[in-house]
Amino acid sequence: MEKISITKIQALMLGITSITVTGHLLFIPVIIVHAGRDSWISLLLATIPAMLIGFTVALLSQRYQGYSMVEYSQIILGKWFGKLVVFIFLFYFFHEATISIRGLGEFYTSAVTPRTPIMVFLIAMLVLAGYAVRCGLEVIARTNQVILVTLIPIGILASALTHKDKDYRNFLPILEDSFGPVWDGTLPIISLYSSIFVLSMIFPFVNDTKQLKRYSIITMIILIMMFVGPVTGVVAIYGAERAQGLYFPTFLTLRDIEIGALQRLDILGILLWSLGSFSKVTLFLYAIVLAIAQLF
């Protein structure tokens, strides 16, 4: 018998990949539709709730060492009420997994390969994710480490290469319609960052939970920074009015990079989102499976 153990950095890296990918693919257009040129303010406003959720998840896992969300909800709320709450969480995990996988499928069918039935992507992704979950958490965590290390340079490269098309004067005037739209834009970001709660299912396997709170708060700050580039980039390139109403603005900015012979970098975007979605779906599938196993 051997206990699974991953490091806390591995666990948090899982969180980073899963949030960034769906965020860049599906949430950035939503944020921009709401907040327009003030999206970056929304992003900054979301910092505090994001840190709060990171803190909460870490604190709960520290307090109930070795217990997952399913178990400690039942300890805190009593057996039946706890089970009800767990059921809500479970439904959410399920929903999130479905949405992110469907989102990737839709991305493929509308932007990359329109003639391929969407089923191909969904099933391929799920078979892979299922296989990864069967291999265990350690495998997932390590795979994700490799993936994240490839994704971050792509992100930095993308924002550096689009720099010449950006006009930062597009952010003026600041707060033209006061705070209303900014709040509307903050909510999607908060909801996006809240999904780090899924880590409560894998924190029990972290071998060393010392300083977990600090680490998870730092993670949330890193996440915020990873969103500044794409959100501001899209507005700076397209202007607030055109940025609203693009389905995949981040993909479009990548696709339209043209620096001499260096063009058509859309493959990088596809790589980024496919790998990241794989990590995310795997994480959520793992959480669902584990939660169901522990619940009944």
Binding site: L26, F27, P29, V30, V33, H34, P49, L52, I53, T56, V57, L59, L60, Y72, S73, I76, L77, V85, I88, F89, Y92, E96, I99, R102, G103, E106, L187, P188, I190, S191, L192, S194, S195, I196, F197, S200, Y247
Partner: peptide, 25 residues
Amino acid sequence: IFRFLKNYYPLYVTFVCLILPLVLL
């Protein structure tokens, strides 16, 4: 999906993943 993400999803997720854990805590 886009409409869903825009309108209902944020509220729902914020409730489930931010408010509920806070209540738990």
